[in-house]
């Protein structure tokens, strides 16, 4: 039997939800633990093994000055570095700060804002170090996460499609809620991975997986207008879990409320 590969999980600015998807792999977790050495995973164990690591999963975005050095250090000790989730891959919902004055927030929230060292922008990991694979989602889909881990252990390419949520609706046989019910849905612009969870339960897509590769959002927002969608709703749909990613960012600007505080 070959030496077991070492998996490490580290987090930056995030809610830990993506890491918890690993623990959600209830049926596969024991097998996973048998096949690989879990070298660092704070949500499951205090044990920490030194690098180098064969596969490092990074959750969270870069939001503080000391993150810069830490992510480079982790890159240096990882054979493969994979980002998991919208924060690590796109800056996450906290990238809403990119559109606002962060120092104003810290003044309002903290008694001693001078203790808080934070950046004006939340940025994805790939803006700072080379990333071998980006797994989308808020949170990631546990089956896709298992596929990514299995693929990197086997030295093969992960089977993760970059098509739209519409493809998943059609494969599932879900009737299009936008065409049949007039519900505004971000599905045509959004990267697949959730297996069309929201449209299947009669909710428009929220864009958790970020933009798919070839979208032209203006055509969709025009259609939403024809459906009578409130511009405020359109703005919020585009500025959600992946607000700083193109083309969601630039399209959301068009529908931003014209308020003095902006």
């Amino acid at each position: 039997m070959a030496v077991k590969k070492k998996l490490a999980v580290f987090k930056f600015a995030s809610c830990d939800g993506c890491q918890l998807s690993i623990l959600d792999l209830e049926d596969e977790l024991l097998t996973l633990a048998q096949e690989i050495t879990i070298a660092n995973f704070a949500e499951a164990s205090r044990a920490v093994l030194d690098g180098p690591y064969d596969l490092t999963l990074i959750e969270g975005s870069i939001t503080t000055p000391h993150d810069f050095a830490r992510i480079r250090e982790l890159r240096d000790m990882s054979k493969f570095l994979v980002t998991i989730g919208a924060c690590a891959t796109a800056g996450g919902i906290q990238a809403l700060r990119n559109f606002a004055d962060v120092s104003e927030y810290t003044r309002l929230v903290y008694a001693r804002p001078d203790y808080v060292e934070t950046l004006h922008k939340s940025t994805p990991i790939a803006e700072h170090v080379p990333v071998d694979f980006e797994l989308r989602g808020c949170p990631v889909n546990k089956h896709q996460l298992l596929e990514v881990i299995s693929a990197f252990i086997a030295d093969r390419k992960p089977n993760i499609s970059s098509d739209s949520v519409c493809v998943e609706c059609k494969r599932r046989g879900t009737v299009c809620i936008m065409v049949a019910k007039g519900t505004p849905c971000l599905g045509p612009l959004t990267h697949s991975g959730c297996n069309a969870l929201c449209p299947t339960y009669d909710r428009g897509c929220f864009g958790c997986y970020g933009p798919q590769d070839n979208s032209s959002p203006a055509a969709l927002t025009q259609y939403w207008q024809e459906l009578g969608t409130d511009p405020q709703v359109m703005f919020r749909l585009l500025r959600n879990f992946n607000p700083a990613t193109e083309p969601f960012r630039s399209e959301s600007e068009k529908w931003a409320p014209k308020t003095p505080e902006q």
Partner: peptide
């Protein structure tokens, strides 16, 4: 292409 979302609904 300016109108098409490349969402694949037509094909599926």
């Amino acid at each position: 292409a300016e109108r098409c979302l490349s969402c694949a609904n037509c094909t599926l």
